[in-house]
Nucleic acid binder design. Structure first.
Length: 153
DNA sequence: GCCAACGTTGGC
DNA sequence: GCCAACGTTGGC
């Protein structure tokens, strides 16, 4: 089993939105970055777990835990001209974008802020989240990093 | 709202 | 294949 971190802007889709979905699952659609796609398509397996991270908000940070509940499959929003994430270069015969479904596991009792994580950068070691200029929305997390974040809850 | 950092596009 | 221009991400 692997560990991941997945970012979402809470005004687009938040941990509460996920919790309130009928089955508490949701396709993690709209990813249009090759590295992030490759992590979902080639790296993830059902049963993996992921930190839900709120980005571009007042207190950016880790807010909950999800599990990966599907294998990767083509992202249909790329085929829909009406969709915000439409990509004319992706089509059903040759899909460019893939995603997985995620499931709600639990909310953290509080937000583990990015600033708190940065303050302990030494303990986290090489962590994409706190690399300078990081813009990746999906990234792997080591077991040690996972445990460290949850120990800060 | 600003802007630095980054990824993508497209002309050459 | 290079690289300038552009669009996006995301912290602050």
């Amino acid at each position: 089993m692997r560990y991941w971190l997945m970012k979402s802007e809470p005004h687009d889709f938040s941990i509460d939105d996920l919790e309130n979905r009928p089955n508490q699952t949701e396709p993690w659609d709209g990813v249009r970055n090759y590295q992030a796609r490759n992590f979902m398509r080639d790296g993830m397996s059902v049963g993996d777990r992921a930190l839900f991270y709120h980005s571009n908000t007042k207190v950016p940070g880790v807010v909950g835990i999800m599990k990966i509940v599907s294998e990767a499959y083509p992202d249909p929003t790329a085929f829909d001209p009406e969709d915000k994430h439409y990509d004319p270069k992706s089509n059903p015969d040759n899909p460019r974008w893939y995603h997985v479904d995620v499931g709600f596991e639990r909310k953290l009792s509080r937000t583990i802020g990015l600033s708190e994580i940065k303050a302990r950068a030494d303990e986290f070691g090489d962590f994409q989240l706190i690399r300078k200029g990081n813009r990746l929305s999906i990234m792997p997390v080591s077991k040690a990093q996972w445990d460290l974040i949850l120990s800060m809850e």
